[in-house]
Amino acid sequence: MITTIIRRGIQAMFVIFAMTLIVFLGVNVIGNPVDILVNPDLNQAERLRVVERLGLDQPLWQQYLTFLKGLTQGDFGTSFVYGRPALDVILDRLPATLELALLAMVIALVIGLPLGLYAGLYPNRISSRVIMTGSILGFSLPTFWVGLMFILLFAVELGWLPSNGRGSTVEFLGARWSFLTADGLQHMILPALNLALFKTSLILRLTRAGVQEVVAQDYVKFARAKGLRENRVILVHILKNLMIPVVTIIGLEFGSLIAFSVVTESIFGWPGTGKLIIDSINLLDRPVVVAYLMMMVVLFVTLNFIIDISYTLLDPRVRLDGKG
C-alpha cells in the first residue's frame, strides 16, 4: 500500500506540473493587463516602465520559468491590483468560501442522505414520489434565479435574513470566521442554502439509486431472514455498502463548492474566493487568477487521493494496489 501511495503521489505531481503549463499559458495569452491598470493618458515611456515593473517585458517562456521557480518557494507572484503576494490575497478570502462550502455540504448531507434512503426503501409511497419530484426541481432551477428568489422572499418580503455581506466575524486560528457569531450565521444561511440545493438533489438521487441496488442483494435478504432488526439492516448492511459512490460524490462536490461558488458569492456579495476570481479576471490580475486555479488543481488532486484511501476503509475488498 505504501508503494501505491508513493506511485499515486508521483502521478499527482505530474498532473500538477502539466496543469501549471496549461493554466499559465491559458491566462497569459489573453488580454493586456497594462491597458486596464494604467491611466490611458500616460506616455509610452511611462507605460514601458509599468510593463517592466510587472515583468511583462520578458518572453513568455522566461515568465513561465520564473513562475515555476516561485512555485517551489510558495511564491505565486505579486498581485497587479493589490500590490501584495497573490497567495496572501487568496488566503485572506479563503476562510469565507470554506465555511460557506462546509455549511452547504452539511445541509446537503443532512437533507439528501435521509431522504434518498427513505425514497429508496419505500419507492412506491406517494411521499417518495414527491421527494423525487422535488429533487428534479433542485437539478433544474438555475442557481442565480434561486438566489434572487431567496433574497426577494426571505430578505425583502419577510425580512427574516440578511441578503448581502458576511456579517460579524471572529478571529480563530489566524483567520476571520462568520459561523462563530449569531450575525455571521444569519448571513450564511441564504448563500449556503443556495449552494446546497443542487448538491442535495444529487446526493438524494445517488443514495436512492444505491439503496435500490443494495436492497436486492442476497446478504440483505439473508440479514432480514435471520430476524435482524430493520434499523440494523439499514445501518449496517444497506447504508454502509452504498457509501462508496456517496463518498466519491461528496469529495468531488465539496471541491466544486469551493471552486465554483462564483455565482452564489456574486449574488449575495459574499467576500470569498469566488467573488475575488471574478474581480481578478475583469481586471486581468494574472497572478491572482493563476494562483487561484493552481490551488483548485491541488485541491481536486488531494480530494481524489483521499477518496481512494477512503475506499479501503469503507470496503476491505477494495485495495489500492489492485490485489485482493
Rank of each mutant, 00 (worst) to 15 (best):
V156R: 15
F154P: 06
S163D: 12
W145S: 10
P142R: 14
L180F: 14
L113G: 02
P162Q: 10
V146M: 13
L121T: 00
N124F: 08
L152N: 12
G134D: 08
L153I: 12
F154Y: 03
L180I: 06
L121D: 00
L141M: 14
A108F: 13
R125K: 15
S178A: 13
A175P: 09
I107C: 05
F139N: 05
F172N: 06
D183W: 10
L185G: 04
F172R: 12
L152P: 07
F150E: 07
F154W: 04
V130D: 04
Y118Q: 01
G184C: 10
P142E: 09
M149D: 09
S140E: 08
T143K: 12
L121N: 00
I151N: 03
G159V: 07
L141R: 04
G167R: 05
L137Q: 07
V170K: 15
F144K: 13
W160K: 12
W177L: 13
F179L: 13
T133A: 06
V110C: 05
N124K: 15
S140H: 09
L103A: 12
T143I: 15
L173W: 09
I111D: 02
A104L: 08
M105Q: 11
S140R: 07
R129H: 03
V110P: 06
M105I: 11
L117M: 06
W145I: 14
P123D: 02
W160L: 12
P123S: 08
